[in-house]
C-alpha cells in the first residue's frame, strides 16, 4: 500500500487548504497592524495591504508614542508585576505542592480541595472586596496590589498541577537524603530541579494572562506611576484615536514583546495547555 489512493491525496490537499486559510485569517490582522505602523499616514490609507517601501517608510508613530506616552515606565511596571507574581507563585506554589504531596497529615485532602476552589471561581467576582482590602492596606496604586492579587489567582492551578508532578518523584531518592541527614527544606529544594518542566509550564501559563490583564490595573493601580503596559496602551489608544500612526505604533509596541515571548516559550505553553487539559 505504498501509493495513496487519489481520494486521500484530495483529502490531504483539502486539509492543508483549510489550515492555510485559517492560519492566514489568524495572522492577517496582526500583520496588517505591524506592517502599517512603519508607513507614513497617506500610505496607510492608500495602500494598506502593501509592505512599507523606501518612499512610504516612516517611524512618525513611534516618535509620537515615545514622545508623549510613558511607555518605558509602563513596560518596567508590567515586567515587575509579572516577574514578581511569577516568583511568588513559584515559591509559595512549589512549597505548598511539596507539602501536600509529601506528607500525610490530617486535613491534607481537604486543604487540597480548598486550594483548588480558585481554579473554577473567577477572582474578578471578589473585586469590590479586593479593592477595599487593598485600600485598607494602603496598597492602591502600587505594584504590590497587582502582584498579590495575581499570585492569589495563579496559585490554585499551580499547586494542583505541581503536586501531581511532585508525587511522581521517587520516594527512595528522598528517603536516601533523609538517611544522610538532610533537612526537610533541603529535600524540598532537591526536588525542584526534578520537576523543572512542570514548573516551566506553570510559569508560562501564568505569565501571559498577568501581562495581558486590563481589569485589575484599571481598578487597583490606575495611577501614572503604577500603570502597566496593557492599561497604558488602552488609555493612550483612547486619547490618540485619530492619530493613526501613533495608534498603529503603540499597538505594535505592545504586541511585539508578547510575540517574542510566545516564540521563545510556545513549547511550554502548548504543553501546559495540552497536558493540563485532561486533568
Amino acid at each position: 500500500m505504498n501509493r495513496a489512493p487519489l481520494s486521500a491525496v484530495f483529502q490531504l490537499a483539502a486539509a492543508h487548504l483549510a489550515l492555510l486559510i485559517y492560519t492566514a485569517l489568524a495572522l492577517f490582522p496582526v500583520g496588517l497592524i505591524v506592517m502599517n505602523s512603519f508607513k507614513e499616514r497617506n500610505a496607510i490609507f492608500r495602500t494598506p495591504f502593501d509592505f512599507p517601501t523606501a518612499e512610504t517608510f516612516s517611524t512618525a508613530g513611534f516618535e509620537t508614542v515615545f514622545g508623549r506616552g510613558n511607555f518605558p515606565n509602563y513596560f518596567a511596571n508590567s515586567i515587575m508585576v509579572t516577574v514578581g507574581a511569577l516568583l511568588l507563585i513559584f515559591i509559595a506554589g512549589t512549597m505548598a505542592a511539596y507539602a501536600l504531596s509529601e506528607y500525610r497529615f490530617p486535613g491534607n485532602t481537604l486543604l487540597g480541595l480548598y486550594l483548588s476552589i480558585g481554579i473554577m471561581v473567577p477572582i474578578r467576582l471578589g473585586t469590590v472586596s479586593i479593592l477595599r482590602l487593598i485600600v485598607n492596606l494602603d496598597l492602591n496604586d502600587t505594584l504590590w496590589a497587582l502582584i498579590l492579587v495575581y499570585t492569589a489567582s495563579g496559585l490554585p492551578l499551580a499547586v494542583f498541577v505541581l503536586s501531581q508532578f511532585m508525587r511522581q518523584v521517587p520516594r527512595d531518592l528522598k528517603d536516601a537524603a533523609r538517611v544522610d541527614g538532610a533537612s526537610e527544606y533541603r529535600i524540598y529544594w532537591m526536588t525542584i530541579p526534578l520537576i523543572r518542566p512542570a514548573i516551566g509550564t506553570v510559569m508560562v501559563f501564568n505569565m501571559i494572562p498577568i501581562w495581558n490583564d486590563l481589569w485589575f490595573p484599571l481598578i487597583l493601580a490606575p495611577g501614572e506611576a503604577s500603570k502597566t503596559v496593557t492599561l497604558g496602551a488602552q488609555q493612550f489608544l483612547g486619547q490618540f484615536a485619530n492619530d493613526y500612526n501613533a495608534v498603529l505604533a503603540s499597538l505594535t509596541l505592545a504586541a511585539i514583546p508578547v510575540i517574542i515571548l510566545y516564540i521563545l516559550f510556545s513549547r511550554q505553553l502548548i504543553r501546559g495547555l495540552t497536558s493540563g487539559a485532561v486533568k
Binding site: L27, N212, L214, A233, A254, I259
Partner: peptide, 8 residues
C-alpha cells in the same frame, strides 16, 4: 497566536 495577545 491571537490567544496570547492582550484583549486590549
Amino acid at each position: 497566536t491571537p490567544s496570547v495577545l492582550s484583549v486590549v
